[in-house]
Design a protein around this nucleic acid. Structure first.
Length: 730
DNA sequence: ATGTTTATTATTTTT
DNA sequence: TAATAAACAT
């Protein structure tokens, strides 16, 4: 009866699923059915080996991946999957620390600081430590500390290793920063991992509890783990040694987030008896695309050999197109999408444009708007990062954890209630002197209870005192009401008592939209109330907003062209993929040009993009590119040189109908577009821009580029003759 | 305490 | 170029 979990698997996949005992390393190429293998392996453990789901942990990097895994397991196991631990590293650690974090200084109600909160706190740390933030940019220090934490160095360990003056300064800041976090009952993202490892090292009974529980451990996206995460996985697995890691070194693109591919080497060193299974058959892409991907990644030195292949058809050749500039690159793509859709070759939702930097999306958005192509821009400001959302969350966080000073400072004057920088400075100074937490100092000051500890300094003016008093009363009231209200109700009260709605709607530029976001947040709180006991509601809600960032993700039901960065595209697939900006300095990015390892990562990024494509792949570059205010000539990316000519069809500027049917062949010389259709001085009319005068007209590939000065708001535009449909006026 | 002007600085961003 | 932060004036 239970053999069907093996059905439809190829032999390598089957081997991976059936290897249930001992350490296992699965190297999974793109499109090789990785998620399928993981889920089937879990199903196999439960249904064939009779392992209780309670004893299995599957750890992923993203909530999206975790959710997909849960959904698929639901289908495979139904109710028999109950009790499985499946989530991100960070979520797992947060759970452990809420329950058992006291030995490492965390109360169950600790808050989780995101990067913005981290930077806020660091700024103040550096001020207090008198470190000049011009000489030591906060972002840099933040990254250094994060890097230290990712390799499990605490302030002492880091200080001991610090050699350069810069590192010594960082060490000083790091030490104080950790003190402040502790005083705030807060952990940043890196702390979640670091503190869990420390907990396991310092409290053997805590480790024993989790070690004995998890008989089987699976780690997905292993190429993106950092040292701390790997250490954690090893600790967890050390009793039963059933650790299965799945990854693809060729798709490691997060070293700048301290992911360390060397973990794969460490794994082999730490588990010399590990079995290795390579999933090399690709089910996603055509032969052409797989071949291009292979050639592209081949020059990388640090690789684990893996011979990707597919049994799929050859498919159309890869189209390489050189546009004049980013604007025309975008127009070309948008028109090509439109053509594919009109000719029924693809639906819009099956097409994606991928690029290295977010700034590149702009030209594509404009082109989509101009040609009326619906699009979906992925990325940008994440929902929980939005100012108005974070403000509301800050109120909730203060209710939950009075020590959270970052939240306190964030909203003490939002909406404005007359507590400015001066008052706050005074309170902070006072708190310091009396060694009180900030909220304690504010309370003391508001009651005017005596003078400073030294008996001197008359504290606040009456006006400021009243304001502070008002704020504290507001908080107190919220805390009282929180006892009898759900999260949504509490949120409502916070909004009401602060007048936040009016503040947005009357004071802010995008108030309407911001208010919508607050309502969206409220909706989520309401949803959560349905499934969580009221007593845990607030804690669970705060946990979720801290650790889940993907509310606004790809909507597959929308019939729109997807615009997405290469990084975000990892894990996705599309029948039609356009990779834009294949130019030196962009892909590979300038900041990687002098570093061979960084260059390899850029190459992997490009590889990730190529391997997203199922049927059709387009590689684009511009001849000139507008970057940071000035236009510069661009040279073709070295990655383009690694695509063998036999797979390329040099796409003509205007794709004539059916050109995709042509046989692949070497790039043909660009034809010219015949006699000039316009001359400077001609009067013309354009459907959208109205009347204008031709300034210039030059041949451009198979077409003509016409520069027209329009009379209306349109100004001077450069258009392609065959698309602009300019009407010549007498 | 808050609105205005100037200066600065620009990859990627799973948690 | 354009967004954002810090400095500045009111």
């Amino acid at each position: 009866m239970p053999v069907d979990v093996l059905e439809g698997l190829n032999s390598a996949q089957r081997e991976a699923v059936e290897t249930t005992e001992g350490p296992l390393l699965i190297v999974a190429g793109p499109g090789s059915g990785k998620t399928r293998v993981i889920t089937h392996r879990i199903a196999y453990l439960v249904r064939v080996c009779g392992v209780s789901p309670y004893r299995i942990a599957a750890v992923t990097f993203t909530n999206k991946a975790a959710k997909e895994m849960r959904d698929r397991l639901q289908r495979l196991l139904g109710a028999r999957g109950q009790g499985l631990t499946c989530g991100t590293f960070h979520a797992f650690c947060a759970t452990v620390l809420r329950r058992d974090g006291r030995p490492v200084g965390l109360e169950p109600n600790f808050v989780i600081y995101d990067e913005e909160d981290q930077v806020d706190l660091l700024k103040r740390t550096m001020e207090a430590a008198e470190v000049d933030s011009n000489r030591y940019p906060v972002r840099g220090v933040q990254s250094a500390i994060s890097g230290a934490k990712s390799v499990l160095l605490d302030p002492g360990g880091y200080a001991a290793r610090a050699t350069s003056p810069y590192e010594k300064v960082v060490a000083r800041v790091y030490e104080r920063y950790q003190h402040l976090l502790a005083r705030n009952q807060a952990a940043d993202f890196d702390d979640l991992l670091l503190k869990t490892v420390h907990l396991f090292q310092q409290a053997p009974e805590a480790l024993a509890k989790y070690q004995s529980r998890y008989v089987h451990l699976l780690v997905d996206e292993f190429q993106d783990t950092n040292v701390a995460q790997y250490a954690l996985a090893r600790l967890l697995a050390s009793q039963h040694r059933n650790i299965c890691v799945v990854g693809d070194p060729d798709q490691s693109i997060y070293s700048w987030r301290h992911a360390d591919i060397r973990n794969i080497l460490s794994f082999r060193r730490d588990y010399p008896d590990a079995k290795m299974v390579s999933l090399a058959e690709n089910y996603r892409s055509t032969k052409t695309i797989v071949a291009v991907a292979k050639h592209l990644i081949l020059p990388n030195r640090s690789r684990v050999e893996k011979d990707l292949y597919t049994r799929r058809e050859l498919g159309p050749p890869v189209a390489v197109h050189e546009a004049f500039n980013e604007e025309e690159e975008a127009v070309w793509v948008v028109q090509e999408v439109d053509r594919l859709v009109r000719q029924d070759k693809a639906r819009r939702s099956e097409c994606a444009v991928m690029y290295r930097t977010n700034a590149q999306s702009r030209a594509f958005e404009e082109a989509c708007l101009r040609y009326g192509i619906p699009y979906q821009l992925i990325g940008g400001v994440r929902f929980y990062q939005r100012r108005e959302v974070k403000d509301i969350i800050a109120y909730l966080r203060m209710v939950h954890n009075p020590d959270d000073e970052v939240s306190l400072r964030r909203v003490i004057n939002v909406p404005p209630r007359g507590i400015g920088a001066r008052t706050l400075d005074e309170a902070a100074r006072w708190a310091q002197a009396a060694s009180l937490p900030l909220h304690g100092a504010l309370e003391a000051l508001a009651c005017q209870e005596g003078d400073g500890p030294s008996g001197a300094a008359p504290p606040l003016g009456t006006r400021a005192r009243a304001a502070v008093q008002g704020f504290l009363q507001l908080l107190e009231r919220l805390r009282q009401e929180a006892k009898s209200l759900g999260v949504a109700g509490l949120l409502d009260r916070a909004v009401e008592l602060t007048g936040y709605r009016r503040y947005l709607l009357e004071g802010e530029e995008r108030g309407e939209e911001q208010w919508e976001n607050v309502l969206e947040l409220r909706g989520q709180a309401k949803d959560l109330e349905e499934s969580v006991p009221a007593a845990e509601g607030l804690a669970r809600f705060l946990e979720r907003v801290a650790l889940v960032a993907d509310v606004d993700n790809l909507d597959e039901s929308k019939d729109a062209l997807t615009l997405i960065t290469l990084h975000q595209a990892k894990g996705l697939e599309f029948p039609v993929v356009f990779i834009a900006g294949l130019e030196e300095g962009l892909l590979p990015h300038v900041r990687s040009l002098d570093d061979p390892e960084a260059l390899e990562e850029e190459r992997r990024l490009c590889y990730v993009g190529v391997t997203r494509a199922k049927e059709r792949l387009y590689l684009l570059r511009a001849f000139r590119r507008h970057i940071m205010g000035s236009t510069k000539p661009a040279t073709p990316s070295r990655f383009l040189m690694d695509v063998p000519a036999e797979f390329i069809l040099a796409a003509p500027r205007m794709a004539p109908d059916g050109w995709m049917k042509q046989a692949p062949g070497p790039a043909a010389a660009a034809p010219t577009g015949g006699p000039l259709p316009f001359r400077a001085g001609d009067k013309v009319r354009h459907g959208k821009f109205g009347d204008g005068i031709v300034v210039n007209c030059v041949p451009s590939d198979a077409d003509h580029e016409v520069t027209v000065a329009f009379r209306g708001d349109a100004g001077v535009k450069r258009l392609l003759a065959s698309y602009a449909r300019l009407e010549k006026l007498a």
